[in-house]
Design a protein around this nucleic acid. Structure first.
Lengths: 192, 192
DNA sequence: AGAAGATGCGACACTGATGATGCAACTCTT
DNA sequence: AAGAGTTGCATCATCAGTGTCGCATCTTCT
């Protein structure tokens, strides 16, 4: 029984994964797509989706949980507390981009999600804030910039880069370069 | 009759404006809000909304048309073709922020809108691209930056600034500063 | 006052999405 | 082969949102 159950259950888990990925694909293009469309994209019947997820809300919730977990891992893997700030910034950026490219919709829903997701998200956010503080202390960020603004700019750039063509590593390089140097020429004297 | 009709018509136009503004307010918070919620926010009956706009789609279309018109005016007023690039950039940024703060939802729908809106939007976009080319030629932007990427970054920053607290002028100043200089410290020699 | 325009209100039909259920068929494992 | 687990399919009930109508009422202009 235990082995039989395990085998059957792995089938179910594979189906769940397939549905989650299909849902991300469909909902990222059309956030108000129907369960029917999601099921079709997953190659399963609509009833199967309902069997695995009690409601549409539950499906989206599961998506955000899954994405949030990968998101937290991506940031943690960069060692934002220990690695030198600039290195950690590159690393975290590349890792997060990889996740965000595949789970853009799910991650955009983190704000409206349940308490568990909100908690993890807040932790990651705080971890990022801490990294930015360290970066400023290390002289990577200018002393006169508002760290909250800098972080919002960083998020905005990630959002933009995530829907740009290219390899995550290359995107991360360009992103961090833009974040730190901007796109302007170094002004010779004033150049008002 | 002509005066009577004019008076009645101005009442209707005032109602239309009220509904458009209410719709923006409601839909920017919840893109899938019902006509009922929009009507309530506008202080009118749901049937009145349907009297003025044949369908939900028509309402959104009217919103994007209205916003797109103001958007085009905002950019044109900065004289992007004639004014010195850096000045035009500041001006256009401040003007566009004013519009985008009030019509964020409507402007986000420009991509899915009708041909007329798409045309105007494309014109403005091209006008912006031209401004960036002039800026690069004038030495405001670095020679080695991809202008498309720079423009996308610019859009992303506008999107972010539009939902930040503060006065449009102050936001524009900070935005352009960040766009050109970034948030990093000028590296002394290499500082890998 | 009278006429015209605009709105509110209640009612209605229609549509699409959601969620639940029972049954047959399929696929593994043992 | 037998059984457990999973899925597909057809079906049903329910519900929310949309769009339309007719009628009463109110305001405004003449």
């Amino acid at each position: 029984m235990s082995q039989g159950t395990r085998a059957r259950r792995s089938d179910a888990e594979r189906t769940v994964r397939t549905i989650l990925e299909a849902a991300e694909r469909v909902l990222s293009r059309n956030p108000s797509a129907s369960m029917e469309q999601i099921a079709e994209a997953a190659g399963v019947a609509r009833t199967t989706v309902h069997r695995r997820f009690a409601s549409r809300e539950a499906l989206v919730e599961a998506m955000t949980e899954w994405a949030t977990r990968r998101f937290a891992e991506a940031v943690a893997a960069a060692g934002p507390q220990t690695t030198p700030p600039l290195v950690a910034l590159y690393q975290a950026t590349a890792n997060v981009l990889r996740v965000k490219i595949d789970w853009g919709f799910a991650m955009s829903r983190a704000a409206t999600a349940g308490p568990e997701v909100a908690r993890v998200h807040a932790e990651v956010e705080e971890s990022c804030a801490e990294l930015f503080r360290r970066a400023q202390a290390a002289g990577v960020l200018r002393d006169d910039v508002d760290l909250d603004w800098a972080r919002r700019v960083y998020y905005a750039l990630i959002h933009e880069a995530a829907q740009s063509p290219g390899e995550p590593d290359a995107l991360a390089t360009r992103l961090v370069d833009t974040l730190l140097r901007g796109v302007g020429a170094e002004r010779l004297s004033d150049a008002g």
